[in-house]
Simulated scan of single mutants.
Amino acid sequence: MANSTRSILITGGTTGVGFYAAAEIARNCPDHCIVIASRKDADQSAKAINDKLRQNNVQFLPLDLGDLKNVRSFVETWKEKHFPPLSALILNAGLQFPHEIHYTADGFEATFGINHVGHALLFHLLQPYLAHEARIVITASGTHDPAQKSGLPDAKYATAEELAHPTGKELTVDGRGRYSNSKLCNILWTYALARRLEKLPGKKWTVVAFDPGLMPGTGLAREYNAFLRFLWHHVLPPIIPLLRLVLFHNIHKPSESGASLVWTALDAKEKAANGIYYEGRKHIKSSVNSYNEADQEELWAWTVKTLAATETERHQFEVVN
């Protein structure tokens, strides 16, 4: 990888849609350094991709998005390894806790903390390592949109602080509702960042949100009970074509959604699109609430204030210089 011209980072790249996307990118970009980041790589995913392609341009770096010290340590490691400039940053990792409330190492509600806060800090700290032309893709979900009737509780946004540190009745919110809320935050933050990138001089950075659809067989159900995990991993995957026909069009194999994620990140024509919401390979409207600019700015301001450790970082995190 010493001769790599660019880097691409994928969080959650060891399993599911992230793994298939990493393999496809490695195949299409043999001259790029592909880094997959997750808490662990139990299946040696990076090695598996390299062995299959007979290449050596994929590597694994440990990253715990639920621990902000670990996120900072990850970026220090990135700096020390002198990776080539990042041409694509794919913020794909996500967790869902369907039952009791969980917290991150920093005391944030874990779904919000991992799906939004950890990713936001990672982006901000990696800004100096982005190439002149860079694509940021955030894996969101159609569950954020009540109009899609996903079966999850409707996403609602009041304040970021309420999501980060729920109190009172907010402590009893269904964990699946916390997931849909976090996915709404992914899109609110995407639109807030997109406005700033449009004003950024001297750079060609774009950011979009991507809905991979429902993907039975992925690790998203790992916190569910044994029966539901069995259905998710063994019963539903073989009948995806039938589910797509009789239930909802946006149900896919992880390999299919992985290919769409790669297209969203790397397609030459799409790379110019900024502030767009994708359902697979289609530009569609996100939820009505996701276009509330006041909510976008409230989330943005809270995130910068919470994550910036110094005034210098605050200025950097604001993106517009």
Results as ranks from 00 to 15, higher is better:
residue 239 I to G: 04
residue 213 G to C: 06
residue 284 I to S: 07
residue 273 A to P: 00
residue 44 Q to S: 12
residue 249 H to A: 13
residue 13 G to P: 09
residue 193 L to K: 09
residue 195 R to H: 10
residue 62 P to I: 04
residue 9 L to D: 01
residue 268 A to P: 00
residue 197 L to R: 05
residue 129 Y to S: 13
residue 249 H to R: 15
residue 145 D to T: 08
residue 181 N to I: 00
residue 163 L to E: 06
residue 23 A to K: 08
residue 3 N to G: 04
residue 267 D to C: 10
residue 79 K to I: 01
residue 87 S to W: 01
residue 12 G to M: 05
residue 297 E to Q: 15
residue 128 P to K: 09
residue 151 G to P: 02
residue 70 N to P: 01
residue 321 N to V: 08
residue 246 V to R: 04
residue 198 E to T: 13
residue 281 R to I: 12
residue 227 F to T: 11
residue 253 K to F: 14
residue 227 F to Q: 10
residue 89 L to E: 07
residue 234 H to K: 14
residue 111 T to Y: 10
residue 30 P to E: 00
residue 284 I to M: 03
residue 261 L to D: 03
residue 115 N to F: 10
residue 150 S to C: 07
residue 301 A to H: 09
residue 55 Q to P: 00
residue 249 H to Q: 13
residue 56 N to M: 02
residue 77 T to A: 10
residue 280 G to K: 03
residue 189 W to D: 04
residue 272 A to L: 11
residue 137 V to C: 01
residue 239 I to V: 15
residue 103 Y to D: 02
residue 193 L to M: 13
residue 216 P to L: 03
residue 229 R to G: 10
residue 195 R to Q: 13
residue 53 L to N: 00
residue 292 N to I: 13
residue 150 S to G: 06
residue 92 N to S: 14
residue 95 L to V: 15
residue 74 F to Q: 02
residue 63 L to N: 12
residue 263 W to S: 08
residue 40 K to Q: 12
residue 316 Q to A: 14
residue 106 D to L: 11
residue 118 G to S: 08
residue 301 A to N: 14
residue 258 G to R: 01
residue 94 G to E: 06
residue 251 I to L: 07
residue 284 I to T: 15
residue 320 V to T: 14
residue 145 D to I: 00
residue 201 P to Y: 02
residue 224 Y to C: 08
residue 130 L to S: 03
residue 150 S to R: 06
residue 160 A to L: 09
residue 94 G to D: 02
residue 203 K to S: 04
residue 318 E to D: 15
residue 162 E to S: 13
residue 123 F to A: 09
residue 292 N to C: 13
residue 105 A to G: 01
residue 11 T to V: 04
residue 57 N to M: 04
residue 290 S to Q: 08
residue 319 V to S: 02
